[in-house]
Design a protein around this nucleic acid. Structure first.
Length: 574
RNA sequence: CUGGCCGUAGCGCAGCGGUAGCGCACUUGGUUUGGGACCAAGAGGCCGCCGGUUCGAAUCCGGCCGGCCAGACCA
């Protein structure tokens, strides 16, 4: 490609509404333009990067036996009704009707469509299967943000596995785990595999691939010592308990105007937050439920959701609290409550001498003994971990790190196969329901994550694996010998199957260098009269900034070798 | 959805009652040419939209639309 023909509208200043660095640099480098919140055009450079990411994904999916296909993006409503997700997906699903009034959805994922196709499989001999596609997904996100990181329309690699047995599913899952590890390594992304919550997908195991970045939206808890890593949505930690006094009688005491844990702890030195019970009222699938956690702990809603297998959880309003317990939030307690379910976090188990609301404004109770005074229906882990807490598996301490979720793999189980009546005949001639897995990588998000982790004050600095071009050849003057050498090198590199961009624009050197650096092309071959006089050209690495002189003669070969080296440094051994 | 900020040239911004401006980018000519050149001449605007107030609205008021940020939410 010649830059003189390239549509790459670079900007010296980032548009004001780009807040995160990947968004700014992708705009400035002329990779993307916004059409609408959450909808981006990928310009030629952006599309090249996108497709290089997709190709890495394809190669690794093919390597584990994946078969690429393409499923429709527009689905009739009945497909989603059959799995029960027409309702469950709620407002996140784009819905529309055709001229006959038939309802449709724009696909946000393809378990249903895959399950329908899986109905074609008759025999265990045809299993396992690994199917994948790279296709546009539509999700009506409540808040698209951060450029390509959270959008409403995006290409996703989604794969689906179909296996006869749980062991088979485990193997398919492990294969994906391996493929994903290799993919992110090749993309130059320092992804961490973490235990995750399955959320609306259902199913048993789920692992997310997380790239540490301040632009992310998820927090993971990790232990540097034993390598434990989990999304905070399900991370666990050990908890230090204060020493409780011996059992004491339950007593009411007046707490005028006190409505928060902190205020109570302040007013009563014998009631520090870790000796209080926080009483929260939530509707879990429409059932009003008390949830108790230690006063200084935070309730983790996704743990609650997962643990109860609930479809929806919402906090009760202040009014609903008063209707149910007769007091406002801040004065609620579970003592004496027997008409509502009570869930309690395990960090409260066995505690006594605690303080909690008396279900009457301006009154609290002290001397509360969990065993004696509260009828707990269910104990579970509902507590959000905090940085610095002890690791549950070793004597290390947990760190909480902000991350971008670039991939997620799920064991789905038989839910979808059952919903669509999929059965195959096993070895003994019995019809059995196969089990499925579902695995996703957001291509554009991965691209943004690379941008987020590969840049400096001059702009982007792509790993060769995904760079829009591997090398830029710059001719510095219009002099015949200079441009002829540049043209010659350009031609040789192209014939050597190198992705080369010839910067043949009639601009000053500084402008060309700045653009090439902004756009993040990993290597630059500079041809100017100064070094060409002694038969040399210059070869510069974007990442390190180092420049070496190469004899113009044979430079195409040495450049190709350098590029090949850079590729192999990113490629994991098989 | 709640709260905050913001919509003026491709990008960044100023103007905040008297009819549109600056820097960069763009076009033409000239001088330059190894790190974002200089001079000169140009082109480019439903000042987000609708309504109101006013002799007069980019500017004031109301409504709407859109964008960004935080939260809620979220595979």
């Amino acid at each position: 490609m010649r830059w003189s023909n390239l549509f790459a509208p670079t900007l010296r200043e980032a548009p004001a509404d780009a807040a995160v660095i990947s968004h700014q640099l992708l705009l400035r480098g002329g990779f993307i333009r916004q059409l609408h919140a959450g909808h981006y055009s990928l310009l030629p450079l952006g599309w090249r990067v996108h497709e290089k990411v997709a190709d890495v994904v394809r190669e690794e999916m093919d390597a584990i036996g994946g078969q690429e296909m393409l499923l429709p993006a527009l689905h009739p409503a009945w497909v989603w009704e059959r799995s029960g997700r027409w309702q469950a997906m709620g407002e996140e699903m784009f819905r529309l009707s055709d001229r006959r009034g038939t309802l449709h959805a724009l696909g946000m994922t393809h378990e249903e469509v895959v399950a329908l196709l899986a109905g074609e499989i008759r025999s265990y001999r045809d299993l396992p299967q690994i199917w994948y596609q790279i296709q546009t997904k539509f999700r009506d996100e409540p808040r698209p943000k951060s450029g390509l990181l959270r959008v409403r329309e995006f290409a996703m690699k989604d794969s689906y596995t179909i296996d006869l047995t749980d062991v088979g599913l485990d193997r398919a899952f492990d294969l994906h785990h391996l493929a994903y590890t290799r993919i992110f390594q090749r993309l130059g992304l320092p992804a961490v595999a973490v235990e995750a919550s399955s959320g609306a997908m259902g199913g048993s195991d789920s692992v997310e691939f997380m790239v540490p970045s301040p632009a992310g939206e998820d927090d993971i808890a990790t232990c540097a010592k034993c390598r434990y890593a989990a999304n905070v949505e399900r991370a666990v930690s050990a908890v230090k308990q204060p020493q409780d006094d011996l059992s004491e009688p339950l007593r009411r005491f007046k707490t005028p105007g006190i409505r928060t844990i902190a205020a109570l702890a302040e007013a009563f030195p014998d009631a520090p937050a870790n000796r209080q019970i926080k009483t929260l009222l939530h509707f879990i699938n429409e059932d009003l439920t008390l949830v108790l956690v230690r006063g200084d702990h935070e309730l983790n809603l996704s743990k609650l959701l997962d643990d109860r297998g609930a479809g929806a959880v919402r906090p009760a309003s202040a009014e609903e609290c008063r209707d149910a317990l007769g007091a406002s939030p801040g004065s609620l307690g579970a003592v004496g409550v027997d008409d509502l379910p009570i869930l309690a976090d395990t960090a409260l188990r066995g505690r006594r001498g605690l303080v909690t609301g008396a279900n009457e404004d301006d009154w609290h109770l002290r001397g509360v003994d969990l065993e004696r005074d509260i009828k707990v229906d269910y104990w579970g882990d509902f507590r959000q971990v905090r940085p610095g807490e002890p690791c549950a598996r070793c004597d290390g301490a947990l760190e909480v790190i902000r991350c971008i979720e670039t991939g997620h793999i799920f064991k789905l189980g038989r839910r979808y196969a059952e919903a669509f009546g999929v059965t195959v005949m096993d070895e003994s001639g019995v019809h059995v329901t196969p089990t499925m897995g579902s695995y996703g990588i957001g291509i554009g998000r991965a691209m943004a994550a690379v941008a987020e982790t590969h840049h400096d004050e001059r702009g982007l600095s792509w790993p060769v694996s995904v760079a829009p071009y591997e090398v830029a050849v710059v001719s510095l003057t219009a002099e015949d010998s200079v441009s002829a050498t540049a043209e010659d090198l350009y031609g040789r590199l192209r014939r050597g199957r190198v992705d080369v961009l010839l910067d043949d624009r009639n601009l000053r050197a500084g402008v060309k260098f700045s653009d090439i650096e902004l756009v993040g092309i990993p290597f630059r071959a500079t041809i100017g009269p100064r070094s060409l006089a002694s038969g040399m050209i210059e070869f510069t690495s974007r990442a390190t900034g180092t420049t070496v002189s190469l004899p113009a003669e044979g430079s195409a070969e040495s450049i190709a070798i350098s590029i090949q080296d850079a590729h192999s440094r990113l490629t994991p051994s098989p």
